[in-house]
């Protein structure tokens, strides 16, 4: 995940045209592309949030998604063995590997595959995953819709959407 130092170092790239930022993001998100297109691993959530973090740093177009947005997300498995949180503030994304209490939206998912289907599957959307009982959502549903868009927007920028 992009640390603050990494972000500071990479941030000049975001001043370049959007296409350049997207190109470099694509280059730097190989792992995420693999997770999206191929075999999924237990690291999916971590890699996804990391990929988003990098993309927000590198791509001015992608970063526009979180301009003025303040939201806190908690992602976890039902057994709490996997959990991570993402907070958006001041145009930045902050990813934590642990749980937070003051989330605006919480996504509890069965496994990595279910989370991927929830966020990315072309023939499924957020409601469908809830119907299949593979994902449970608490809090503000609109946050989930926004996150869903940002995830798919990233996939599009990576050329896999």
């Amino acid at each position: 995940m992009a640390s603050r130092i990494k972000r500071t170092m990479l941030s000049p790239i975001s001043l370049m045209p959007e296409m350049v930022g997207d190109f470099i993001t694509r280059f730097g998100s190989k792992k995420l592309k693999e997770e999206l297109c191929g075999e999924i691993t237990d690291k999916f959530l971590e890699i996804l949030l990391g990929g988003m973090d990098i993309a927000f740093t590198l791509s001015s177009g992608y970063r526009k998604n979180i301009k003025g947005f303040e939201g806190r997300y908690l992602f976890r498995t039902a057994d709490n063995l996997v959990s991570a949180s993402a907070a958006f503030k001041d145009g930045n994304m902050h990813v934590h590997e642990d749980s937070i209490d003051d989330w605006g939206a919480r996504v509890t998912f069965k496994d990595a595959k279910a989370l991927r289907a929830f966020l990315f599957s072309q023939n499924q959307d957020i409601l469908n995953s809830i119907l299949a009982n593979e994902v449970e959502v608490d809090g503000n549903l609109n946050y989930i819709y926004k996150f869903g868009f940002m995830a798919r927007d990233l996939a599009k920028r990576l050329g896999v959407g």
């Binding site: 966020l119 072309q122 959307d125 957020i126 409601l127 549903l141 609109n142 819709y145 926004k146 869903g148 868009f149 995830a151 798919r152 927007d153 599009k156 959407g161």
Partner: peptide
């Protein structure tokens, strides 16, 4: 309408 958000590109 916001439920369409994830689908805007597709």
């Amino acid at each position: 309408a916001l439920a369409l958000w994830p689908e805007l590109w597709t």
